[in-house]
Nucleic acid binder design. Structure first.
Lengths: 120, 120
DNA sequence: AGCAATGTATCGAGTGGCTATACATAATCT
DNA sequence: AGATTATGTATAGCCACTCGATACATTGCT
């Protein structure tokens, strides 16, 4: 656990999905992927660098992303972008995730009903 | 992977949540938990015995479920039921899951839009 | 008698996330 | 100028976990 009240546990099954989804609109480098997840989730999804980079390397090895170093700036940056296969994979996994959520919803709804609403 | 087109990957982060949720209406034994998940998910969620029993033992150790052997029938059955702490834990995890889903929804919606609808 | 379903359990292999650590550059503060 | 913080990528090792295979016993069916 750790990380106080974050989603570390739940993220286990969808880490690659999280990473791939941040690349949907174009290339990003690792640190920027972290920031994107953090910001777009209202500071709730925090992916550790030690988790992120191994995932990126694996995705690269699986030809789902393509990487290239940025040599123009003094700062070393490795940009990742979806390959065609990567985009297809992302769509497949996203669809699968939506279906899985629907499955769980049925099981959890009776529990969630009768519970106080979350702070919106 | 394996298991063809099931949710093995996605389930990784929510296996204990799945198990606990089947106990919400009363005690069940392992095999029955498997059947419940399978049936209530339209045959899509299949938890292997090799995954289920270690989880149940861990939950028991964590005092989230209480187990007792059924001695009346010839068939060995170990019934599990939620403890007070277990029910609280379940509610907490269910809430957390709902919030996490909402986070991901935002990231995935643009990808899911423009994709063919699933077979309902 | 033979086979499938029911029922619990464990082991070994493979995977995979996370903490800690390392290293380097740019920007900001004092 | 020196120190600290933010930016940026990467790896090693520990730990936890999932799953397929396997084992064993009972019940029901043919």
């Amino acid at each position: 656990m750790r990380q106080d009240e974050l989603y570390s546990e739940l993220m286990r099954g969808s880490l690659d999905l999280l990473v791939l989804s941040t690349l949907r609109d174009g290339p990003k480098y690792g640190y920027l992927i972290q920031q994107t997840l953090r910001d777009e989730s209202g500071q709730r999804i925090r992916m550790q660098a030690g988790s992120l980079y191994p995932i990126l390397h694996r995705l690269e090895e699986e030809k789902l992303v393509k990487a290239s170093w940025d040599s123009t700036t003094g700062r070393r940056r490795k940009w990742y972008e979806l390959t065609a296969a990567g985009r297809k994979h992302l769509q497949h996994r996203a669809t699968q995730w939506r279906d899985y959520v629907q499955c769980l919803q049925g099981l959890l709804q009776p529990i969630l009903d009768g519970l106080p609403q979350p702070a919106t």
